[in-house]
Design a binder for these strands. Structure first.
Lengths: 332, 332
DNA sequence: CTGAAAGCGCTAACAT
DNA sequence: ATGTTAGCGCTTTCAG
């Protein structure tokens, strides 16, 4: 049995193709009685639209692309983000096509989509350039580090939340917070770093910054954490900027003879389930992956429909989850 | 400027549509000279095929679907899996459409794909039923727990690796290993559990099993871990079946006055970066997400081309990474 | 080795 | 409020 087409539905309902099409899409042209007849016929025949035909006719694809940079260390945020995007797209009857780095190697690569959502665009990412060059509407999660601009942005003020976190550490008795910063060049990492330096200046604190990249293992982050504790013995709080830094630093802190949550407060700029499960559990900023994904998709659909103008920018609030690792002596 | 079509290419090369199409797809019909002329014209015009038109004509979609169950706790495995699938699909010039649970609520939901890859199909998952009912070729990562069967399977012998792990623990001096099992009903969780019980029987060891689910937080797994240590004081090794269990159990073990890697060996049936970064680092079975994804996609394309028969089953070998948490006293 | 013509299933334009 | 016609861009007959 070949699947039913719109002509089969039209015939069964005793109307023309056009009327069937209008009825199925809810266009006001048709009378209620006709619409019902068409819908009944469609459901009886198990009719499902042929998206290729619609796409060819309307010059749309019925899919949006989702670009995920190939890093494993923010996997929880990314995966939640994917769920958020797919969820919203489903509401618009759109599919989501995933795009990952590496495909730019294909000479004529062009995903078959109407628009794009990009997570964490990084400076100098060839795939980002490639996708922007396609000329489709693009919404990015987090602002572009420089140069080109996407059609829309959903961003969070990581700098502001870093200040909130620093104030919290100070309130819990920390006098010399250190930052284990991320070497990645992104709006997010820069915001955290600048905000930290500004806070230190404002509070007359000497900054203590180490930089690490997070690849397949945590050894570099751990070495940097150890070095900073050794070099600056009066450091009494440590913030891990990247996902994984704080968890990686924890054993190093303990090995250095410090007690997390008492004489060394530990916190992360990116929350994840490992931080919740650790002992002591680690204070962190929730980056709200699912909501960010959903918001990006919503903005993209508004852009596609023309409902929102190019250049739109939406700020997504974050949340600081205070846990045991920043208890402080006073609360002990 | 509307994009160039195949007619534009044909005209520029001085041939017919048909010949242009044949040349572009490398069909043997055309002479070398003609092909070159067509390819040159195409590249000069920046021609990109209109996939909707091809799809309509050939009744294919140019995309495969990837179903990811909505759980965050295996995020690293899943995300690597996605990369593996997309990578292979790209080699076949196919897009990958992500499908997540929840979409089955839409009455006529049917993703626009030629075939499907499903990760970890669980018993009673409505979306799994729904996707199978579409009648498309389906490859699943891990075998189906029961009932319906997919067109092809890529699976790993988690039971066998659990035995390897148990033998390793015994060799490092453990006499009474306990299992913190997963409540999820999947081929994977069942294989681990059965294999554990069989091993205990074979070695005359009294089994010690606790069952936990892993949702947004680790508290249940932690409570179960604490209870088993309390109830069975001679337990000297603990295996976390699900991703996250071992990491969650670690602080509980320490709080119970046990020393990980010495009087209590800790291991996980699913590896992740948190386990590598912990102190002590935790011995784990590498579930090879990226390779599993790639293998699933390869099998799906072989099934789509008819190169492989329905019912194919491929075993993917895993790997045990021995780390500090199962050092044992002797090696101390 | 190449071309002409038909048609995939749908929707937009133009009727009535 | 509904029907008729044309055509989206491609691949597949069928004819040379």
């Amino acid at each position: 049995m070949t699947p039913a087409t719109i002509v089969d539905v039209a015939r069964a309902a005793g109307v023309s193709k056009t009327t069937a099409s209008d009825a199925l899409r809810g266009h006001g042209r048709v009378s209620d009685a006709t619409r019902e007849a068409v819908l009944r016929a469609a459901s009886e025949l198990g009719y499902a639209i042929n998206r290729s035909a619609r796409s060819l006719r309307t010059a749309t694809t019925g899919a949006i692309g989702l670009y995920i940079p190939q890093v494993v260390f923010r996997s929880e945020h990314y995966l939640s983000f994917v769920y958020g995007v797919v969820d919203v797209a489903a509401g618009f009857d759109y599919d989501v096509t995933v795009i990952v780095a590496g495909e730019e190697a294909r000479p004529n690569y062009a995903p078959h989509v109407d628009g794009l959502v990009m997570i964490d665009p990084a400076e100098g990412d060839a795939m980002v350039e490639r996708l922007l060059a396609m000329g489709l509407p693009v919404v990015s999660s987090e602002r572009f580090p420089s140069g080109q601009q996407p059609t829309g942005v959903v961003w969070s003020d990581h700098g502001a939340y870093t200040r909130v976190l620093l104030d919290h550490l100070a309130e819990r008795g920390a006098h010399r917070p250190a930052l284990l910063a991320s070497a990645t060049v992104s709006d997010w990492s820069i915001g955290i770093q600048e905000s930290y330096l500004a806070w230190c200046r404002d509070h007359g604190v000497e900054p203590a910054v180490a930089v690490a990249t997070f690849g397949t293992d945590a050894s570099q982050a751990q070495a940097e954490a150890a070095a900073i504790l050794e070099r600056e013995p009066d450091v009494d709080a440590l913030i891990g900027a990247s996902d994984g830094f704080a968890a990686a630093a924890a054993p190093v802190v303990t090995a250095a003879g410090r007690v997390i949550g008492e004489d060394l407060l530990l916190a992360s700029c990116v929350d994840n389930s490992a931080l919740r499960a650790m002992h002591p559990s680690v204070t962190a900023i929730d980056t709200k992956g699912g909501e960010a994904g959903a918001e990006c998709a919503r903005l993209l659909f508004r852009l596609l429909s023309g409902e929102t103008e190019r250049g739109a920018s939406i700020e997504l609030p974050l949340e600081l989850h205070v846990r045991e690792s920043t208890q402080g002596r006073s609360q002990g």
